[in-house]
């Protein structure tokens, strides 16, 4: 269980996280979705007590992270894949982490096996690929067998097989009743992994709830019609309550009406239709609708949703 209450973080005059409140419930996977620079990592660092909130509070399993007697037992975090000294071997890194909590060496070997790092455990982390770094980060997160997991962009840099593995892992962790909170800037990834969504843009929560509900809330179905008598049809449809826009001569985009009703109206008035296609908004469209005002960095002129990771994580 993670509870944030009016959480705010400002760096100088830049507000990274702006008065957000949310509750992440145990037993399900909650996706933290937002464009790069939206405040995901900052929020996660505040949960872990690494960054101090400018105002507001955040608790994990009932109290501030730093006040837990055995923090690694409560929360396991992957904040950035390279939060490891590059000169140390994966196993040494895990052993140093384990030592602080007197976690037995057997558990270190267990998480190494679990994350598929056995063959490289004695190699220095400096030579690891991004994917191996992610696996090591997940291994350290699992070290204390924590009740809550916080994973910042866990599938970044993983190959497809690794992505599948992370999905299965978080699913099984949530099924065991743990709280799983993971971030991504990819809607498609979240749709396949998460049960709940928390969408953030420019430091504010812009949507929250079960994945399908969040998608439905922003993707009002549209209908596309082409007809030689488009103008006449448009007047009919508007009289019937539809919102009509036209992008090209003879073509109409309709909202607030379904395809069946359009067909019946056209038929009743003897208007020929050259196209009648219902279009439900795609995940990406829904995401872009959600975040169109919240994208911090966009390419010149065109409103593209960020799809490529640009290394926001340090």
């Amino acid at each position: 269980m993670i509870e944030a209450h009016q959480l705010t973080k400002r760096y100088g005059d830049k507000t990274a996280v702006d008065d957000i409140s949310f509750t992440i419930a145990p037993g399900s996977v909650t996706g933290f979705l937002g464009p790069n620079g939206a405040g995901k990592s900052t929020t996660m660092r505040m949960i872990m007590g690494l960054d101090r909130p400018t105002s507001g509070t955040v608790t994990v399993n009932g109290m501030a992270y730093a006040r837990h007697r055995a923090p690694l037992r409560e929360v396991g975090a992957l904040l950035d894949a390279k939060a490891v000294h590059t000169g140390r071997s994966a196993r040494s890194h895990l052993r140093t982490m384990a030592a602080t909590h007197n976690i037995p060496a057997a558990r270190v070997d267990e998480v190494i096996e679990m994350t598929g790092l056995a063959t490289v455990a004695r190699k220095r982390v400096g030579g690891f690929s991004l994917g191996m770094g992610q696996r090591l980060g997940i291994a350290s997160a699992m070290l204390g067998d924590p009740r809550t997991l916080i994973l910042d962009e866990p599938v970044n840099g993983l190959d497809p097989e690794g992505v599948q593995w992370v999905r299965r892992l978080v699913r099984s962790l949530a099924d065991e009743g743990r709280t799983v909170f993971l971030s991504s800037h990819l809607m498609s990834e979240m749709a396949q992994t998460a049960d709940q969504l928390l969408v953030i843009g420019r430091g504010r929560i812009i949507a929250a709830g079960p994945v399908q509900q969040v998608i439905d809330s922003v993707s009002a179905a549209a209908v596309r019609v082409r007809s030689p008598r488009a103008t006449e049809l448009a007047a009919l449809l508007e009289a019937d309550g539809a919102a009509v826009t036209s992008s090209a001569p003879g073509a109409l985009e309709l909202r607030g009406i379904d395809a069946e009703r359009v067909g019946e109206l056209a038929c009743a008035h003897g208007i020929a239709l050259h196209e009648l296609s219902p279009r439900s908004a795609s995940l990406e469209e829904a995401y872009m609708t959600l975040t169109q005002d919240a994208v911090e960095y966009r390419s010149d002129g065109t409103a593209t949703a960020p799809t490529a990771p640009k290394g926001e994580n340090r």
Binding site: M48, G49, P71, A83, H93, T100
Partner: peptide
């Protein structure tokens, strides 16, 4: 980050 996560 790892160090302070273990010993906040």
């Amino acid at each position: 980050h790892s160090t302070f996560a273990a010993v906040p």
